[in-house]
Simulated assay, not measured.
Amino acid sequence: MEKILIEDIIPIIVIMALGYFCGKIAYFDDDQRQGLNKVVLNIALPAALFISIVKATRHMLAEDAVLTALGFLGIIVMFMISFFLCRLFFKHSIQEAAVCALIAGSPTIGFLGFAVLDPIYGDTVSTNLVIAIISIVVNAVTIPIGMYLINLGQSKDNREAALAAANNARTNKTVAAGKGGDVAVDPTKDPKTDKNAEVMVATSSNKGKAHHHEIKNPNVAALVNALEQPVCWAPILAIIVVLIGIRIPDQVAPTFDLIAKANSGVAVLAAGLALSTVKFSLGWETIWNTIYRLLITPAAFLGVGLLCGMGHDITKLSMLVLSVALPPAFSGIIISSRYNIYVKEGASTTAVATVCFAATCILWIWLVPLC
């Protein structure tokens, strides 16, 4: 456990603190900060996701049907519960709740999975199987779902803003007609220049680009826009490669590894930069997200795992519980920072949960065998 703290947890905290300090002294301007986020989100993270997933095999997925089913369904269910609870209790927009689910509902399995599980359980087939399953569902399923919801929320905001602009235009025309003459209309209220059309998007902090105006169905447009992002299609392509049975030659791995290795460090640094731009929040929402990530999610997996008969292999169940009890996925805070959505709560949750994991990690290692 001491090795995990020194080699895994402390470096995360130190690098995040470095990013926070760089942000406070304005070492990076906004363009440079967004550039770092873009490098991670569009290049380094997709490469890291692709190469981590293609190392799995169909045999690994079929080896333990209960573990595979529980991993896939459990992560997706906990992701969606986090999304709906964020909408219900904290009244956030669709895109803000989507980023919340990417952070509070998804573990950073790609970054800390091997670093935490290997020293505790050993570098075994079972360890690799658990990490592969959780990594695939987090990277190839929940990230595309999150991106889809973000684009869906943006599309909804755009429609509401356009409707508000149209209503303002009709109101101005009605007032002008009622006065019985040509009345000069304030150019700030002109539908062609109406800034109110930006209010909904601005308040939701969604700076992403609007695409696919030619697609009338907002759900289809949001899905297509999400699938165009490298962070979505790269893991999906990887899982297709695994299911087809294509093996990527070992000689190809270093090509991806070189850029993928930049992902974790730059992602944590960028998380610190994002945190420096907002006022740190240790409110009820941050506390709830941390509890949901570190306690509620693994407790749910433990209970369902016991009900599904995994109690006969307590080591594998313990690995599964610990893998979903990891701190928030750094891909969530990168997406948050890149699109300027849910930054304060997301960065605060990432920082608090990473520090608290040092204690909850010990808790689950001790508690699962007792159950």
Rank of each mutant, 00 (worst) to 15 (best):
K261R: 15
A164K: 12
A47C: 13
I134H: 01
G74T: 04
I10C: 04
K189P: 10
P328V: 00
D250P: 10
E285M: 14
C371H: 11
M1S: 05
E345R: 04
I134K: 02
A222M: 07
S281W: 06
V54F: 11
V304M: 06
V343I: 06
G153R: 06
G110R: 00
I365S: 02
C86S: 13
D8Q: 15
D118V: 13
I248W: 03
V175N: 11
W364Q: 02
I25A: 07
A260S: 08
S337L: 01
G346W: 08
V185M: 08
L163F: 15
E2H: 14
T286M: 12
D64G: 10
S348V: 04
G245V: 10
N225I: 00
H312L: 09
T174W: 12
E2C: 12
I244Y: 07
C308F: 04
A48I: 02
N225V: 10
T174D: 14
I12K: 06
D29E: 07
M78I: 14
D194F: 05
K209P: 13
Q251R: 12
L117C: 07
T124K: 11
A48L: 12
Y148D: 08
I12Q: 03
A325M: 00
G305Y: 13
I51P: 11
F114E: 12
G178C: 10
L41P: 07
G74F: 05
D31C: 00
L320D: 09
I246G: 08
C100A: 13
V138Q: 10
I365Q: 06
A177E: 15
A17T: 12
W233T: 07
K192G: 14
F256E: 09
D182A: 10
K192I: 12
E7T: 12
A26I: 14
S82I: 06
A104N: 04
V99Q: 14
K344S: 14
I13T: 03
M16G: 09
V130C: 09
V278M: 08
L269I: 07
L269P: 12
D182S: 02
V40Y: 02
V125F: 08
F114Q: 13
I240F: 13
P254E: 05
W288M: 10
G180R: 01
E214M: 09
R293K: 11
G332M: 03
L320R: 04
L320Q: 06
T57I: 00
L320H: 09
E285Y: 14
T171V: 12
P235L: 05
P298K: 04
V268R: 00
L112S: 02
L258I: 15
G178N: 14
K209T: 14
G71N: 08
V54L: 08
L320T: 07
V138L: 02
S348G: 01
H212I: 08
K344I: 04
F357E: 00
S336A: 15
D313S: 10
L302I: 10
G272M: 10
A101I: 03
I287Y: 05
H312G: 13
T297H: 02
L258Q: 14
Y342K: 08
L149D: 07
C308N: 01
W288D: 06
